[in-house]
């Protein structure tokens, strides 16, 4: 514990504030803090506060009615479903990609890593569009799908696909640097001691990456539940059927049901806050185990 506190002091802002060479003059400090916190308040804090204030503007009953509305309920279910499919898929992918990239040397590794990041640099609208081009009525598989009476676009599968696309890199990009940094020595030690590949993965690798994994899952889930643009393109906006929560917010807003729109939005904002809280918790936990390991 003592080592922990010492490392905190070494790391923290006191290191800068207590040394004359790195201490800013009072006037500078006041100015920087005013600008920083003012900017923070207007651009980050205010939008958050407004969501809840607007949601409760017409009283708690209106708020509650908006949430128990059958269309809202179905939107919540669809959002949960999409995340429940997209997150595990990308979890398996993330672990698999990180294993291949971090544990082996092969040509084209850097290129592969860049390709994995690709969905982050593609506009969500284009993420929706590409599936329309593949599965839509005029798309590659459109005629075949129509013959077999399968709907992908303007239906749930399209929403799931778009969600998988936009959350694709989250877990992989969390795990790749983590596993690269941990190296393969522990895995090699396990193999030398007679462990099989699966035993090595479950007993040695997984416990070592669990915090990074959880971190990635939290971020992946937040994006999966909150995605708007991509899902909007492939959804078709059928109330009670192909509406996710963010799409439901849009519909209510465009119908001038502002209080109801903000009520549903407030659920998503709560999700965002929960995400941030969990994320901080994971950072704190993993950071703590990290510094404990560094201690001796």
């Amino acid at each position: 514990m003592a080592g922990n506190a010492a490392s905190l002091a070494r790391k923290g802002e006191t290191r800068f504030e207590h040394r004359s060479a790195t201490r800013d003059p009072l006037i500078v400090r006041v100015l920087v803090l005013t600008v920083a916190l003012g900017f923070f308040a207007i651009f980050l804090l205010l939008p958050l506060v407004v969501v809840f204030a607007e949601a409760l503007r017409k009283g708690f009953e209106t708020y509650w009615a908006a949430l128990v509305d059958p269309d809202a309920q179905s939107a919540i279910r669809l959002t949960l479903l999409a995340a429940a499919i997209a997150v595990p898929l990308n979890l398996v992918f993330g672990v698999s990609a990180a294993w291949a990239i971090a544990k082996y040397q092969f040509r084209g590794k850097a290129f592969l890593t860049t390709l994995i990041d690709l969905p982050f640099s593609v506009s969500p609208v284009i993420a929706g569009l590409i599936y329309v081009l593949v599965f839509g009525a005029q798309g590659w598989f459109g005629p075949w799908l129509r013959e077999n009476d399968i709907r992908v676009i303007f239906a749930v599968p399209g929403i799931v696909l778009a969600t998988v696309f936009v959350t694709f890199p989250f877990i992989a990009r969390e795990l790749i640097p983590l596993m690269e940094q941990q190296g393969s020595e522990e895995e090699e030690a396990a193999i030398v001691l007679g462990a099989s590949g699966w035993q090595t993965f479950w007993r040695v690798t997984l416990p070592n990456i669990k915090w990074g994994l959880l971190y990635g899952v939290i971020l992946c889930n937040a994006r999966a539940m909150g995605e708007f643009g991509a899902v909007s393109v492939v959804s078709g906006h059928v109330r009670g059927e192909t509406n996710t929560m963010p799409l439901h917010v849009e519909i209510l807003y465009n119908e001038y049901q502002f209080a109801a729109a903000f009520a549903v939005a407030s659920l998503l904002a709560l999700l965002a806050l929960l995400t941030i809280a969990l994320k901080s918790l994971v950072e704190w936990r993993s950071g703590r185990t990290q510094s404990r390991e560094d201690a001796p």
Binding site: F40, A222, F228, G229, A265, L271, A272, S280
Partner: peptide
């Protein structure tokens, strides 16, 4: 912690 809000808050909200 709240600096990450734009990452976590759905864009529609």
């Amino acid at each position: 912690a709240l600096v990450d809000l734009p990452f976590a808050l759905p864009t529609a909200v």
